[in-house]
Amino acid sequence: MKLVDKIQGIEILKDDAVYDEIHEHKGDNEQLSFELNTTFRTNEEVLKVLEKMTGQTIDSSVVVSLPFYTDYGRHMKFGRDIFINKNVTFVDLGGIEIEDQVLIGPSARLITVNHLTDPAKRRGLIVKKIVVKKNAWIGANVTVLPGVIIGENAIVAADSTVTKDVLANTIVAGTPAKVIKKVDQKTIRFS
C-alpha cells in the first residue's frame, strides 16, 4: 500500500513514525524543487525533474511554467495535455490527480493538507486527496482545499476558494465557491 493511501483522512500526530517519514521525503523533494526553480529550463527539462519528484513518467504534452512549487512531490499524478501556469503550488502529501486537458491558472494553490483543530494536536496533520477531472479549468489565484473533486469541464473563476466538490459542467466563483452558471456543452470539442 502506498503512503498516500495509508494516510488518507486519518490524524497524523507529531510523534507518529509516519510523521518522520513524511518529513524525510519532504526534505528530498525540497532539493528537487530548488533545482527546478533556480535556473531557466525547457519544458522537457521541467518534466524530467517532475518525473524524479513523482517517480513516474509524465507525458510530453504536459506544460508546466516555472516557477512551480510542491512540498512533497511524490503524490502528484498528471494526465495528458495539461497546462499549469506560473507560480502554482501543489501541497500534495494527500495526493493530487490532474486528469487530461486541465488548465491551471497562475498562482493557483491546491492544498491537500490541514492541521488539526484540537489545540493539543495542532502540529498534527490530516490529508485528503484532490482530483481535477478532464478538461476542467482552474482560474488565476484559486485555492482548492483538501478532499475536493473538480468535475469534468468545470470552471473555477479567478480568486475563488473551493471548499467542496464542484459538479461537472458548472462554473463556480467566490469564497467559498458557489455555482453561478452551467457550462454550454455544445461548444466543447476535443482534438
Rank of each mutant, 00 (worst) to 15 (best):
F34D: 12
L50W: 02
G94C: 03
A17D: 15
V91M: 15
V132G: 00
M53N: 06
H23R: 11
F40N: 13
V179L: 12
I155H: 02
Q31G: 07
I104G: 01
V88E: 03
K2L: 11
L66C: 07
Y72Q: 02
D20Q: 15
V132E: 01
L47D: 05
I82Y: 06
S60W: 00
S61A: 05
Y19H: 08
S107L: 01
K181G: 04
A158S: 13
F34T: 11
N37S: 06
V166F: 07
I12W: 05
A158F: 03
K133V: 07
V131Q: 09
F78K: 03
Y69W: 13
I138K: 05
G147P: 06
A154I: 04
I149C: 11
K164R: 14
G174H: 04
V179T: 12
D165W: 08
T42E: 07
T39F: 09
S160F: 03
N37C: 05
E30H: 14
I12E: 01
I84D: 02
S65V: 09
G27P: 01
L50K: 02
F190I: 14
A158K: 03
E21K: 14
D81N: 15
G124E: 08
F34E: 13
L110C: 08
V142C: 10
I84K: 00
V166L: 08
I150S: 05
T175C: 13
I58N: 00
V156E: 06
I111F: 11
V46W: 01
A157M: 10
Y19G: 06
T54S: 13
L103R: 07
V113D: 02
H23E: 13
L110V: 09
L145D: 03
A173M: 12
L3R: 09
P119H: 07
M53T: 03
E97D: 11
A157H: 08
V4I: 14
S107M: 09
G9S: 10
E11C: 06
Q185N: 14
I7E: 06
N169M: 01
F68I: 04
N169G: 09
I171T: 10
V91N: 13
T112W: 07
V64L: 07
L167S: 15
F34M: 12
S65F: 10
N153Q: 05
